[in-house]
Design a protein around this nucleic acid. Sequence first.
DNA 1: CAAGAGATCATCT
DNA 2: GATGATCTCTTGA
Length: 208
Amino acid sequence: MEFVERDPLAASLGSLKLQRPFYEQTTVAVARQLIGKYLVCHHPEGTTTGRIVETEAYVGPDDRACHASRGRTQRTEVMFGPAGHAYVYFIYGFHYMLNIVTEPAGRPAAVLIRAVQPVAGIPLMLRRRRSDRVRNLANGPGKLCEAFKINRAFNGIDMCGDLLYVEDRGEPAPKILARPRIGVDYAGRWRHKPWRFLLRGSEFVSRM
DNA sequence: CAAGAGATCATCT
DNA sequence: GATGATCTCTTGA
């Protein structure tokens, strides 16, 4: 049980913060195991929490869908560092994407958090998203970042710290589906890899 | 409800 | 100068 932290407060609540060894596992293993865990973000405006229902694995330099396949650049630098750090980037001129770096330093890979089921801080998320439907708050990677107010300031932060992290709340292993990743049609044979993971039956995924 | 367009900018060629 | 790990709105059936 080296993956979690025995923080007395967290333990008393039945929750354990995921620690670095968890994120150092293979990227596909991390992506799969993150399903059903809880993403927590503390912010002056309030705390937001969501149960992770959808992830994607971007496994390294060979994976043509992974940004690291285009080399070590300013943008991808975080992915080349140690596991358990946030890789946040801006895309399409509108949206931020939240990833968690995986595998030991020097092996650039990450897991994209694509959707969560809102659990706490829902009024705050409704305001940020200018929406009135809970199902529409974080059912997509861009929406999730808007609901949690995750932006470039989060790039590189340690997710084993106290600002943004993932908790294991000790629930039984959920039923998980594996599907091809979304939006990577350009990636040749890599586009078919079943590295998108979903919580079976969840209505909070970006699409079925 | 499905399909398509438009929005808008950091990053890399 | 092109493009993207997306979202929202509009259109039309």
